[in-house]
Nucleic acid binder design. Structure first.
Lengths: 236, 236
DNA sequence: CCGATAGTTTGCGATAGCGCAAAACGGGAC
DNA sequence: GTCCCGTTTTGCGCTATCGCAAACTATCGG
């Protein structure tokens, strides 16, 4: 099996406090795989057999209701873990994961988790940390959905994406993976129509530049003004 | 210091896989305290000095936005932990905890956590489990807020409360702590006015019986019908 | 180069739920 | 018993946002 270069992942939060030798041992249990754009990595409801670490690309985690409506739970950026069903004791994946770009992931069999945690307790601590952080972010999202109107929510969502996965350009920050109006709608609890109207508005104000699955927050004003539009949010 | 009876807490998920002696040691690090109805246990933004286990009573965790709007994050039932800021590496509480009834809690100093986790790794694993479960519930809540309308959300919220903290009566299930229309509104992302209208409607249909801070899901139909209202809303 | 496909824009009517305001109600304090 | 205060109910106009429909436009395969 092709070895994974430890130096590429050693600095990740997941492996904080793990010695190089231990890391090596951990990585030996994983295999890597490549998922082409738009392919599913796992489906909601399927038996959870693995957990994942994204090395390259971007992954969308989406949750579907019994009636077929869907939300985007989050976008996974390189270095982040996903599909942690086992950590919470679930036997099935609670969401679907789709590669939105050609992506490379590390895959551990779920059966390796108990053993790894026993040998390297910091794995559990680190995972607890990231899951806890995500819980907080969820609460913030609920707060926003409860108290802000759509335009503010979209502004905030884009700012977060820019922060997480923004590529700096000379005239602004581009969200570094393909994302549609529909996706943004599913992140903010609205419809693609409304998102389209909002972005059109911002575009005509010179705040953003956007096209098919492409969004750029323009630098002089875009970022500042959008941030002000939620005259409330603190540091993300 | 008054000793806590281990037999009262031994069965809790938090202590799964912990030997009685270990439990004893863990409990020795805690103190207990009583909070009267409507008193604050900790405030959002305050430095996190402790984490808590509710022994008796009920606690409301609420998060306030910078603009002063508030949501109810959850109600804590006996046996559940709360104020786990340390587990996620936060130094301040991300929400406010208020006793909605006279309540008794166990309190550990946050400084004890690293040591406890090191000695008893299952604590970390168990905490990861509960935090993960809460994360899932949050996602479900977001999904609901995005896709359902207010009446469905209120129905679902009440059913969850009944399940978590319902007291069985001969004519139905009563939510076993004081809860106002306003509280329900803050759990479901609406206003107390709308909640009031919805409950009035249900009351006149005989589905619920409600009064000042008191809600009873009536047995023959209340529970079933509210559950169905959730399943899918076909054309009314 | 062209057609097909998926994503985007825009108009317009419909409406769920908000927000304000005022009145009714219930429970506890004294 | 009576007063007071927090909670609940209800009416009514308003509007943000949805939902549908149709036109438009990049992008990709061939």
């Amino acid at each position: 099996m092709a070895k994974v270069d430890t130096s590429l992942v050693a600095h990740l939060p997941l492996f904080a406090g793990v010695t190089p030798e231990a890391l090596d041992e951990i990585l030996r249990e994983a295999r890597s795989a490549r998922y082409p754009k738009n392919s599913a990595i796992f489906e909601q409801g399927a038996g959870a057999q693995s957990f994942f670490l994204l090395l390259h690309g971007h992954v969308r985690a989406a949750k579907t209701s019994p009636t077929g409506e869907q939300i985007v739970v989050r976008y996974v950026a390189p270095g982040e873990t996903f599909g942690l069903a086992m950590a919470i004791g679930a036997t099935r994946y609670p969401a679907t994961a789709i590669a939105v770009e050609d992506s490379v992931v590390l895959i551990w069999p779920i059966s390796a988790w108990p053993r790894l945690v026993e040998r390297f307790p910091s794995l559990a601590a680190n995972t607890l940390q990231t899951v806890g952080t995500r819980l907080q972010e969820s609460h913030t999202r609920i707060l926003e959905m409860s108290t802000q109107q759509v335009e503010q929510r979209v502004a905030h969502a884009l700012l977060r994406l820019a922060k997480q996965s923004g590529k700096k350009l000379d005239h602004g920050i581009e969200i570094d993976f393909p994302i549609s109006r529909q996706d943004i709608a599913q992140m903010t609890g609205t419809t693609l129509h409304t998102v389209s109207r909002i972005l059109s508005g911002w575009e005509s104000q010179g705040l953003v530049e956007s096209g098919r699955q492409r969004i750029i927050l323009r630098d002089p004003h875009g970022i500042v003004v959008l941030a002000e539009r939620n005259a409330d949010s603190g540091p993300a």
